[in-house]
């Protein structure tokens, strides 16, 4: 452990332990999933950074969306995101979730993922190398330190807008709203 960070650990132990144990649920859309196996196995070994893949969204606090998002996959993405316990961070990988990338003029690809769920950071590239993923992870640490990775709080605050955007795509959604705006939302 870095001795210079000792003060931070004593001040904010929760935030620090959160930051150094990112449990990832990968949403394997598109070509980005090809970059994930080398980054979590021995060649680059994401566990050096405390990044570890987990089986279910209930155990995860980092959500990595790896590629273009079609209408069909956006639904499970929203459901997965809503199932994750807080605090949770979202990182979109590659250029397709940013603005559609090379698939922007398709009948079935939503172009801007951040209109439907909050994104804490993007790793640009088509596709990004594993090194870029780790740069993104270390940058996410900085954001968590500074309190800027607050996507889940923004989702709670502006849930009505996110939900109305989601319903503009699908019509009525088949699951109830996550936050109702009443006091029993926790």
């Amino acid at each position: 452990m870095d001795r210079r960070q000792l003060v931070k650990w004593l001040k904010e132990p929760l935030k620090m332990s959160n930051k150094y144990s990112l449990h990832v649920v990968y949403f394997c859309t598109g070509c980005g999933i090809i970059e994930i196996p080398p980054s979590i196995t021995a060649r680059w070994d994401a566990e050096r950074f405390g990044v570890k893949p987990v089986a279910t969204p209930r155990q995860a606090n980092l959500f990595l969306i790896t590629g273009y998002v079609s209408l069909k996959t956006l639904k499970p993405i929203i459901r997965t995101y809503e199932q994750m316990p807080e605090p949770k961070y979202t990182v979109a990988l590659g250029s397709c979730p940013i603005d559609g990338g090379m698939y922007w003029d398709s009948y079935n690809t939503i172009n801007h993922l951040d209109k439907y769920i909050p994104i804490d950071g993007y790793i640009a590239g088509c596709m990004p190398r594993p090194e870029a993923i780790f740069t993104g992870i270390t940058h996410l640490w900085t954001l968590i330190d500074e309190g800027k990775a607050d996507g889940y709080e923004r989702y709670r605050e502006r849930y009505q807008e996110y939900r109305s955007n989601q319903e503009r795509l699908y019509g009525q959604l088949e699951w109830p709203p996550l936050y109702t705006g009443r006091d029993d939302d926790v």
């Binding site: 172009n111 801007h112 951040d114 209109k115 909050p118 923004r154 502006r158 996110y162 955007n165």
Partner: peptide
């Protein structure tokens, strides 16, 4: 898709 407003 482009007419959907950005949230932030």
């Amino acid at each position: 898709f482009e007419t959907i407003p950005p949230v932030e």
